[in-house]
């Protein structure tokens, strides 16, 4: 197992190198750079830029150097925690990302825990109560949850919260708390603002995961060894949770590994609709504005999260299922 993990870590390094090259190429693909856009904006405003000024701008952002040198500089900065400078914000990329990462992680983890907790219990319940009224009700809710787009649910909940609860919606804090120092009031205000995004982000996830859980458990409940467990005289709850659930949870673990990047990027569209200061909208804007170092850093983070998530999922799977013992 140890050598397996070591080998996987080695592969991860190689994959990261490839991803950083590819990522860099993709970011550089669109013609023009942020500086070009900036220059044309200045020209539109009537300013006539001297060639020296333009050269200075290029130099300042390192755009005068050949591509491979810029790539080398960019990548070598990672090790030092330097992800370059954002053109748009004139701030270090790391400050921008880490400033928003805390809240993003809070949202992502809360909705992850909520949706997983609900999904597992709902999935197990509807599988063990197949073709009962409650199973049908759950199934309908699941399909509604899957079919309704997240942003629409966000809009509906916003209108609902505003009209029924007379709440201020959007953002994370009410106006009076935005710049206030942290206090109990501010915390409660935060909680008050958080439930909509968490429900919205969690809804489709919960619906999807509980569907997967139900389908898998139904398969496993038909297995002979489940019958064997019953034949021993075990309680139905032990049969379900000890003997069936453990063999039905594999796909969920794989999904969990794949959802790690989502923790960092957050639900971008939902965040935009609800005006949340998370990393999703930041990434989105960086791509739109050709803010290449910011977008590149995101890309690298997301790729790394995906790799770590998958490794974690594989290790977890090996722990759950002894048949997957790597050598």
């Amino acid at each position: 197992m140890f050598s397996y993990i070591m080998r996987r870590l080695g592969y991860m390094v190689i994959t990261m190198v490839i991803i950083s090259v590819l990522g860099y190429i993709i970011i550089e693909l669109p013609p023009g750079s942020y500086v070009d856009a900036e220059i044309s904006r200045l020209r539109q405003q009537g300013g006539n830029l001297a060639p020296e000024q333009i050269a200075a701008l290029y130099q300042r952002y390192g755009l005068d150097k050949p591509e491979y040198v810029r790539f080398g500089l960019w990548v070598s900065g990672f090790v030092r925690g330097d992800f370059g400078q954002s053109f748009q914000y004139s701030m270090p990329v790391s400050d921008l990302i880490f400033g928003r990462l805390g809240l993003t992680l809070l949202f992502s983890f809360l909705s992850l825990i909520l949706s997983w907790g609900i999904a597992i219990f709902v999935g197990v319940y509807s599988a063990t109560h197949r073709y009962t009224v409650s199973d049908y009700v759950i199934t309908i809710l699941q399909f509604v949850g899957l079919a309704v787009p997240n942003f629409l649910l966000a809009l509906v909940l916003m209108v609902f919260a505003q009209n029924v609860f007379k709440m201020q919606v959007g953002g994370l804090f009410s106006a009076e708390y935005v710049n206030a120092p942290f206090s109990v009031g501010k915390f409660l205000d935060l909680l008050n603002h958080m439930w909509i995004p968490i429900i919205v982000i969690g809804a489709s996830n919960t619906a999807w995961l509980s569907r997967v859980m139900r389908a898998n458990l139904l398969d496993v409940l038909n297995m002979q060894y489940v019958q064997t467990a019953r034949a021993k005289g075990l309680k139905e709850s032990v049969v379900t949770w000890k003997h069936a659930f453990r063999n039905a949870v594999h796909p969920l673990i794989m999904v969990l590994g794949g959802s790690l990047p989502g923790i960092i990027s957050g639900e971008t569209i939902v965040a935009i609709v609800l005006n949340l200061p998370t990393t999703g909208p930041l990434y989105f804007n960086a791509l739109l504005q050709k803010d290449m170092y910011l977008a590149g850093a995101f890309l690298i983070f997301l790729a790394l999260a995906l790799l770590i998530g998958n490794l974690g999922a594989d290790i977890l799977l090996a722990w759950v299922d002894p048949r997957i013992r790597y050598e």
Binding site: Y225, T228, A229, G233, H243, R246, N247
Partner: peptide
């Protein structure tokens, strides 16, 4: 209390009768 203790059963498929985990 009767299952397993008084009346026990073994099945056809030894490959799938035991829990792999």
């Amino acid at each position: 209390n009767i299952r397993g203790a008084e009346l026990a059963m073994i099945f056809q498929e030894p490959m799938s009768s035991l829990n792999p985990s």
